[in-house]
Nucleic acid binder design. Structure first.
Length: 261
DNA sequence: ATGGTCGAAAGTCGA
C-alpha cells in the first residue's frame, strides 16, 4: 500500500496534475494540504470517477485539507481535537486537520500554521497548535500502543540544518527556530518516527516559486510522514517526487510517499 | 537571458 502527502497549493488549479500523478504512481491514499477552496468547490468528480473516495474540509480561499483513498475512508474527523487551537478575531477553527481510517491505517492530513514571523501572533498559534497535537497524539498511543497511525502533511518546520538550503538566510525567521524544532522533535519523542528521512538523505520537499529557487536547489524539507511504531515497522521504502515540482503549473511542494507491506 | 512567483473571495494578502 502506498500513502502519500502533498501540499498542492490549490486543488482546483492542480486537479489535472493530481489525477495524473495518482494514476502514474499507483497511490492508495493521498493526504493533501492547501486545497484553497470551500467544500462545494472541491473537484471530487474527477477523483470519484477514478475510484477514489475523498473527504475535505475547507471554508474559504485559505488552508483546507483533504484525504483521498481507494482503500476505504472511515471515521472521518475534521479536526484533531475538540479544542484544536484557533486563530484570528473572532477566533476561527481553521481547516488544517482531517483524519480517516484507510486500509487499517489512521491517516491524518495536517497543514501546520506557517507562523509568519517570530513576533507575529501566528507564531504563538503555531506553537500552541503543535503542542496540542503532540498531546493528542500521545493520547492516541496511550489508548492503543499498537495503533497504526500516519501523521502526514506540511509541518512548516525544517527540523535540521541540513533541511535548509542556507541557514544564514533563515536566521531570525520561522521554520528553523528552536521552539519550532523542539515541538517537532517532541512529536518524534512521543512515538512517531520520521519514516521518510532514512530513505531520502539530503532531499528537500519545498522550493519557493520566487528567485528561481527550484533550479538553484534552494529548498527546504518541511513535509513529513510520521508513523507510529506499529506502522513504521511496515514501511519498506519512501521517496520524495522531485520530478513533480518541475514544469509549468507545478505546486511549490513535491509529493512525499511511503510504501508499506 | 544577467532577471525571474503564484493563487485566491485579487487590485491585497498569504505563502
Amino acid at each position: 500500500m502506498r500513502i502519500a502527502t502533498w501540499n498542492v497549493n490549490s486543488i482546483r488549479s492542480r486537479i489535472d496534475r493530481v489525477v495524473s500523478w495518482l494514476e502514474r504512481n499507483d497511490i492508495d491514499v493521498l493526504a493533501i494540504q492547501e486545497t484553497k477552496c470551500r467544500e462545494d468547490q472541491f473537484p471530487g468528480l474527477e477523483l470519484s470517477s477514478m475510484g477514489y473516495e475523498f473527504a475535505h474540509v475547507g471554508i474559504n480561499q485559505w488552508n483546507g485539507v483533504a484525504l483521498i483513498s481507494r482503500v476505504g475512508l472511515d471515521d472521518i474527523a475534521t479536526s484533531f481535537a475538540d479544542d484544536q487551537p484557533m486563530f484570528g478575531d473572532p477566533a476561527l477553527l481553521e481547516p488544517r486537520a482531517i483524519g480517516a481510517t484507510c486500509g487499517g491505517v489512521r491517516v491524518w492530513s495536517f497543514y501546520v500554521p506557517n507562523g509568519r514571523e517570530l513576533d507575529n501572533p501566528h507564531y504563538a498559534y503555531k506553537l500552541a497548535w503543535l503542542e496540542r497535537l503532540r498531546q493528542v497524539g500521545a493520547d492516541w498511543l496511550a489508548a492503543d500502543p499498537d495503533a497504526q497511525i500516519a501523521l502526514t502533511g506540511d509541518w512548516n518546520v525544517a527540523p535540521l540544518d541540513e533541511d535548509v538550503w542556507d541557514m544564514s538566510v533563515f536566521e531570525g525567521r520561522t521554520h528553523v527556530s528552536a521552539p519550532e524544532r523542539a515541538a517537532f522533535q517532541a512529536m518524534i519523542d512521543t512515538g512517531y518516527a520520521d519514516v521518510v528521512r532514512p530513505h531520502t538523505p539530503g532531499q528537500y520537499t519545498y522550493w519557493d516559486y520566487q528567485q528561481l529557487a527550484f533550479p538553484k536547489k534552494r529548498g527546504l524539507r518541511i513535509d513529513f510522514i510520521l508513523a507510529s511504531q506499529a506502522l513504521a515497522s511496515r514501511v519498506d521504502t519512501a521517496w520524495i517526487d522531485r520530478e513533480e515540482r518541475k514544469g509549468k503549473g507545478a505546486s511549490d511542494h513535491a509529493p512525499v510517499v511511503i510504501e508499506i507491506s
